[in-house]
């Protein structure tokens, strides 16, 4: 079953294949295209140029603000997003925002939600957010507890696949072969090892919570739709957003969207949603490409292409992408029909 039909008409720009807004009805346009958007994470923060997390956070929270009519409280784990947004007094947060610790954002959010309940402020909704380290590693215990209790919190993971704030160290979300400061590109198996890491969205689904979705910063419509849908539900919900990190991934700052799109288009990052533990929809791959196109523009995978290269390792990564494609049915039999019209950029 495919439920991703909230935007029945797609207009893709030539080259980028980004979804355009200009030919859509105003009501179908993204929150970000609205000059009156809330700007939950305001300009002036200290994120790196091309930071995917800064984009993802603003996209997600602005959508959540619109969905809740501005009745939102955000809890933030320690990490890049927390550090670059609040070198006080220069906070970039225009929403009610609390940072406590690295590993406890889900539990703190549970407490905020409980307070809202006892105060009878049932219209106020709670979002907790963390990077991948704060989600799959140090925050996992609290996150699993929050899921299991089905507390009324939307937890958003901004996944940039390593500990970027501390200088690019491996996390449980770092992909195989990726160079980090603790998985250097040396030795016979350079970079991060194969066969490790957590599939966090599926772990979230295993808790049987009402809504689990993945998204990337490359597909704004999809990301915003998922946030809006999540905010219409109650109980524990999980959104896992892939946010490329130019610093840690060694990609060009201007390529953040491109890298995110390629992650999805290669099948390495399946974009899907699930309700009550069952996958209910996937974003089909429109223009399938090999993993080389994704890997070769990131310095964290440079060792796979230097000299004679490591085609054996690239082949293993391709096999992972192929496995995702098969598992989630990412290839659209009706792909041409979905693309109704291309718009010149």
């Amino acid at each position: 079953m495919i439920i991703m039909t909230r935007q029945p008409v797609h207009f893709y720009q030539v080259g980028s294949f980004a979804v355009g807004n200009r030919l859509l009805e105003v009501s179908d346009r993204t929150v970000q295209s609205d000059p009156q958007r809330f700007d939950s994470l305001d300009s002036g923060h200290r994120a790196c140029q091309g930071c995917g997390e800064a984009l993802g956070a603003r996209y997600a929270l602005d959508a959540a603000m619109r969905a809740t009519g501005g009745q939102l409280i955000a809890v933030n784990a320690t990490g890049c997003l927390e550090v670059f947004s609040t070198p006080y007094p220069e906070t970039s947060w225009r929403i009610a925002w609390l940072h406590s610790l690295f590993g406890n954002a889900p539990a703190v959010a549970t407490g905020v939600a409980a307070a809202m309940k006892v105060k009878g402020m049932n219209d106020v909704r709670v979002v907790a957010q963390a990077g991948d380290g704060g989600t799959v590693d140090i925050g996992f215990g609290c996150l699993s507890g929050m899921f299991e209790r089905n507390d009324d919190v939307l937890f958003i993971c901004y996944d940039n696949e390593a500990y970027m704030n501390t200088g690019v160290q491996r996390s449980g979300a770092t992909p195989p072969a990726a160079r980090t400061a603790t998985t250097e590109a040396v030795g016979p198996e350079p970079g991060n090892v194969f066969g490790q890491g957590k599939d966090m969205p599926r772990l979230a689904m295993a808790h049987g919570i009402s809504y689990v979705a993945t998204a990337t910063v490359a597909d704004l419509h999809d990301l915003e739709n998922k946030v809006e849908h999540a905010m219409q539900l109650h109980g524990a919900r999980y959104l896992h957003i892939l946010v490329p990190c130019p610093l840690g991934w060694g990609s060009a700052s201007c390529d953040t969207i491109k890298v995110a799109r390629l992650a999805q288009e290669t099948g390495l990052f399946p974009v899907f949603e699930a309700e009550n533990g069952v996958v209910t929809g996937v974003s089909k791959i429109r223009h399938r490409t090999s993993v080389e196109s994704y890997l070769s523009i990131q310095k964290r995978f440079r060792h796979l292409f230097a000299g004679s290269g490591r085609p054996d390792i690239v082949a293993r990564i391709q096999a992972m992408a192929d496995q995702n494609i098969a598992l989630y049915g990412l290839l659209a039999e009706d792909a041409p029909a979905e693309i109704t019209r291309e718009v010149s950029a």
């Binding site: 409280i73 809890v75 609390l98 406590s100 610790l101 590993g103 406890n104 539990a107 703190v108 959010a109 549970t110 407490g111 905020v112 939600a113 409980a114 307070a115 809202m116 006892v118 105060k119 215990g141 609290c142 699993s144 507890g145 299991e148 209790r149």
Partner: peptide, 20 residues
């Protein structure tokens, strides 16, 4: 009922910061 003491204090932090 939380999953650890770390969560117990963390939930208390969230609740207290939200006015409870």
């Amino acid at each position: 009922n939380v999953e650890s003491e770390f969560a117990a204090m963390s939930v208390s932090i969230g609740a207290s910061a939200a006015g409870a």
